[in-house]
Computed example of a mutant assay.
Amino acid sequence: MLDLIIDARPAALAPGFAVKRILPYRLRRMLGPFIFMDHAGPVQVAPAQMPNLDVLPHPHIGLSTVSYLFGGQVTHRDSLGVEQIIRPGEVNWMTAGSGIAHSERFEDPAALAGGALEMLQTWVALPEADEEQAPTFRNYQPTELPIFTDNGVWMRLIAGEAFGLNNGVETHSPLFYLHVVLQTGARFGLPRGYPERGAYVAKGSVEVNGRVYTPGQLLVFTPGLDPVLIAREPSTLMLLGGEPLGERFIWWNFVSSRRERIEQAKADWQAGRILLPPNDNQEFVPLPSDRTRAAGTGSPPPQALS
């Protein structure tokens, strides 16, 4: 029924800004095309500390970053000149392709009031044919993301196709990504037709095959089976998965099917060939010390949130 249970590991991106890091994991580096997953918050800091939370301009290649908020708001700026505030229920989908830099700033004190800021960040690896495409950015509003409700179940399709639902979010390979809220006793399954599927427990607890799972756990399910998740209390889940893409190398914020492309991205960032956001170009994250080689195994330097 379950191939693997991944317990989130703590990671500190800034003082007072801790995240739960779920993917990559040493025993499971990808789930379908998803190669990275962080759960940040709820964040509780004084307004004076807000600048310390900012994620400074940093680069990406070979992937799409997907930002989704439970609460608060974040300002995105990138080297395409895009400036976009993301709020709960929206999706920021940025495809890095051949290279992009972006920042995420926490500029509204109200966004942190009462621990309101809470977000999930995933990275979706690109098929080899799309790894060098021109970078793009798109914000999708809640009205563009279909919602399904049933007895004790609320569900929003963030991207892909699942349970007969689809939307206009541009993806590059077969996948699904869902925000699901269950009331106590509600039963829920997984989308069919995908070889790799998982459920991340963000809040509450769920029972699967007689065992209870709690926040911070990603449940990776055996292909071909149809598990039933039962909410033991009001619970929030993120369901994700899809078709695998094959081996990918990951180092810092770079993902590629080719090891040498990672090395090129390092050189490009150091040489300034990946442009900074024109409206946020006074500071940036330097390339980390290269203590590890780009590899499909091993631990890369800590990634930025997005």
Rank of each mutant, 00 (worst) to 15 (best):
R138D: 01
R138V: 10
N139R: 15
N139P: 00
N139T: 11
Q141H: 14
Q141A: 15
T143H: 14
L145A: 07
L145E: 03
L145V: 11
P146S: 06
I147T: 08
F148A: 12
F148R: 14
T149M: 00
T149D: 02
T149W: 00
D150H: 03
D150E: 06
D150Y: 00
N151F: 04
N151T: 14
V153T: 00
V153K: 00
W154D: 01
M155A: 04
M155V: 01
R156G: 09
R156A: 09
L157I: 05
L157K: 01
L157S: 07
I158T: 09
I158D: 07
I158W: 09
A159T: 08
G160S: 12
G160H: 08
E161C: 11
E161N: 14
E161V: 12
A162L: 02
A162F: 03
F163C: 05
L165T: 04
L165G: 03
N166F: 12
N167Q: 08
N167V: 08
G168Y: 04
V169P: 13
V169D: 12
V169Y: 13
E170A: 14
H172K: 14
H172Q: 11
S173Q: 12
S173N: 10
P174Y: 01
L175H: 13
L175M: 15
L175P: 08
F176K: 13
Y177W: 14
Y177E: 04
Y177H: 15
Y177K: 11
L178F: 06
V180N: 05
V180G: 06
V180Q: 04
L182K: 01
